[in-house]
């Protein structure tokens, strides 16, 4: 594996934040229309971190609340990454109400809701980033990483194939209702240099 040193300047970080800001706004708009609710948009966190420190980078990961998680890979123009949605389990009740879901809220019901939300948030966000950078990302199938588990169980699996990762974290919450989730976009170490090139082009 090629491992040239990857780094991130402040200008590049600002530029990533702006791009993510636009993409997450598009995703939030889709979710807001789906749920007929207002999505509170945070400032996205953009960091180049050691893959092993990932669990520390996740906001609220130390809280011991149960989560359910879906991941979905994406690839295009030699840039590859993984989108990870960490959904707070206490959010399902309100989500079911907003989605007019009338079935039983058991593991299967929750899974259905989780897949609906993740396809909107992940799909729109990846597409939004790709559009701005002129990359067409192909998305893999979503994979359920776990239900009713801890953040640590999801991200502390060890056995990472990369050392550094560009981690983008978006903490979505909804106004007036109890729905919150974290969307993490992780880019492989090899992708960062190519992404930085595209960012530098925008900065020129």
């Amino acid at each position: 594996m090629i491992t040239e040193r990857v780094s991130l300047t402040e200008d590049q970080r600002d530029c990533y934040q702006e791009i993510v800001n636009v993409a997450m706004g598009q995703a939030a708009d889709r979710l807001a229309r789906l749920l007929d609710a207002y999505v509170v948009l945070p400032i996205p966190q953009v960091n180049l971190i050691e893959a092993n420190d990932l669990h520390m980078a996740i906001q609220g990961a130390e809280d011991n609340h149960a989560i359910s998680s879906v991941c979905q890979g994406f690839i295009g123009s030699g840039i590859a990454g993984e989108a990870l949605l960490l959904f707070n389990d206490t959010s399902f009740e309100d989500l079911a109400t907003l989605m007019n879901y009338s079935g039983p809220l058991n593991r299967y019901g929750e899974l259905e809701l989780l897949m609906d939300v993740s396809s909107v948030l992940i799909g729109a966000c990846i597409q939004g980033i790709g559009d701005q950078l002129g990359i067409h990302f192909n998305q893999g199938h979503p994979v359920v990483l776990g239900q009713h588990c801890q953040v640590a169980d999801i991200v502390k699996s060890g056995n990472h194939q990369w050392n550094k990762t560009l981690a983008i974290e978006i903490h979505y919450t909804l106004e007036h209702v109890n729905i919150d989730c974290n969307l993490l976009l992780l880019f492989t170490e090899d992708s960062v240099a190519k992404l930085n090139n595209k960012i530098d082009y925008l900065l020129d």
């Binding site: 702006e18 800001n21 636009v22 993409a23 997450m24 706004g25 598009q26 939030a28 708009d29 807001a32 207002y38 999505v39 948009l41």
Partner: peptide, 9 residues
């Protein structure tokens, strides 16, 4: 000037 394009915003 915002990326928050929700109609509500």
């Amino acid at each position: 000037v915002s990326g928050d394009i929700q109609p509500d915003a």
